[in-house]
Nucleic acid binder design. Structure first.
Lengths: 340, 340
DNA sequence: CCAGCTTGTATTATCGCCCATGACTTTGAT
DNA sequence: ATCAAAGTCATGGGCGATAATACAAGCTGG
């Protein structure tokens, strides 16, 4: 802490006015004449006064801070989300308290409690699991403004997110369109996890009348490049290899691509690869990787906007609204039409 | 906000004890008998009581939160730093307020003011510039615990960081050792920016008796892959091309590598490339890229430890201490010894 | 010339919690 | 039985700010 935190009282003593007058003057109240207001403003300046936000929060019952809960930030797409949210909130006068759940449900619950205790005005949450949202629903029902960054239309919680099911559908549909019928998928296969992408994968298959082979699902058990590499290794060790692979995010896709390099397969000739999120590293990989664009700006802007709406709602929270952004498919070399 | 924030008073009313007794009981004071304490604890549980951290902060004059200021988080190495810091602080009972300066000095000053106003107990700052630290030094002199994440031994401010000068020296020295003498460098050439890496580059040259050609410095004007690509383009358009390139971070290095692919140059045969930070994408690039390891765990752990020391210092801040971590060089294919 | 209105400032209460003080009760030693 | 030493709880003040209310002056007008 600074040695001598200047308080309103210090300005009051110096100028001879009362604490209250000083407070009013600094907040541009019309009840204070220009003359006094100016003298007080000058004194504050001279003393280098900074209002104590904590005290203000206590009386106003709002902290002008929101809590941001992410699973882990190492996924480049989530990183951008974090930064964009911080900036969007900052321009609106809010600060952001930040915490990672480290993909652990108990930890997620804990940080939410911490945020509540710290009286955040609202929370933006990227939950660990899309199926275990009871604790968050309870929060909402208790009147807390919350917006999720992943969407489950019937979770009863506001959400703004890219439509992952639809994005995955587009990616896999694209692979089918260019002639593939044996398509591997690298995605976390946790029953309580995010099933949207697998749903999209399945839907595209069904629509095309292709049987879904669960053998073609490889769980990378993580999200790093190297996890993608080993998941690809498993897929390509099958008796009948897939001719194309859909990876749930670009890090995994880059790992898969890396595997093809090491094993002298050509992409897209021997195997096509498509990712998700459209991070810069995918665009500039050895073979530019097709991907599904994660609309960072749009998601964050809408999510922040919605959260502030909830916070400002005069009487109770309005009915939850889920906004799903239909993502764009970016086609690059890794899924260029097959030559044969 | 939750509809009915439970206060100590509510528990007091329910149990018949006074607010004070409740407060003491919940804080495990030995002055309250087990029996009473238990009944109060149960009532708190039943009412789902959560202490109001804001009120507590006002009384205790500490918020148990620290402010983290980063330039921008899109550099994957900084991302990891952010997450590691959050986790390290979390286990010690601190929350982290997070803000990006967006590489703008005025913005950096602004967020620091905001943090001060919010009474953070201390700050961790990755400053925009290594040369404009006056505002931060003033902070320290006013008694604020601050630890920088970049180091200038004579800035008069505590710091924990990787020794970028030394890391760059090692990288360039390595290039010289394997036979290169015309070495390009892709690094921001802002006079007020981070000069450490260029210093290391220069030192390695001088030690080897090689003249430094300032023509070989390309400013990418940013940190993305594509910026690295264009900086590389400029370097390789010179009448006499460099035979090796040192990039100030791995994103830039990956961009440079990408340029060689598009222009059919072989790495390391035609041109060697080395990066900085050792992010996962460098390891798994088309040609695995040599890099200087950014010791995320060590930097964050030491920085947090030091900051908490400063916060706990009983009488005034101790003399500033700068800890520079000597980074390890990771050699990969992109700088394998030249065949000729 | 005083009721009745502005106008400018001071007083007091409040936010939720912690701390110092001390009153009252119980226990144990003499 | 008396008194000191613990033990147990309530009271009041304060953290730094805002908000509601009160209170002096200075005007106006009938």
């Amino acid at each position: 802490m600074g040695k001598s935190p200047i308080r309103l009282k210090d300005i009051a003593d110096r100028t001879g006015f009362s604490v209250n007058t000083v407070s009013l003057a600094l907040r541009q109240s019309p009840r204070i004449p220009e003359e006094t207001s100016l003298r007080i403003r000058e004194a504050a300046e001279a003393l280098n006064y900074l209002p104590n936000h904590v005290a203000k929060s206590l009386v106003n019952r709002e902290t002008k801070t929101i809590g941001l809960v992410l699973t882990d930030i190492t996924n480049p797409a989530l990183t951008q989300v974090a930064q964009a949210i911080e900036m969007a909130l900052s321009t609106r006068g809010y600060s952001t308290l930040f915490a990672t759940s480290n993909n652990d449900l108990e930890e997620e619950k804990r940080v939410i409690e911490v945020f509540r205790s710290r009286q955040v005005d609202g929370m933006l949450i990227y939950p660990r699991s899309h199926r275990e949202l009871a604790h968050i629903r309870r929060l909402r029902q208790a009147g807390y403004p919350v917006v999720l960054l992943v969407g489950d239309p019937d979770a009863g919680i506001d959400a703004v997110c890219v439509d992952e099911r639809r994005g995955a559908y587009r990616a896999v549909r694209h692979l089918i369109d260019i002639g593939h019928s044996r398509i591997g998928i690298i995605d976390t296969s946790n029953a309580k996890g995010n099933l949207e992408k697998r749903d999209g994968y399945t839907q595209a298959h069904q629509e095309a009348g292709i049987l879904v082979d669960m053998e073609l699902l490889a769980d990378p058990l993580g999200n790093s490049v190297i996890r993608g590499y080993w998941a690809m290794d498993r897929l390509m060790s099958m008796p009948v290899r897939p001719t194309a692979v859909f990876a749930a995010n670009d890090s995994l896709a880059i790992g898969a691509l890396r595997w093809t390099q090491k094993n002298n397969l050509r992409v897209p000739k021997d195997v096509a690869i498509i990712g998700f999120d459209n991070i810069e590293f995918a665009e500039h990989a050895a073979t530019p990787i097709s991907s599904v664009k994660y609309e960072v700006e749009m998601v964050t802007e809408l999510a922040v906007e919605r959260l502030l709406q909830l916070i400002a709602a005069p009487d109770g929270l309005p009915k939850p609204r889920v906004t799903m952004i239909d993502p764009e498919l970016i086609v690059r070399d890794s899924t260029a039409g097959r030559g044969d």
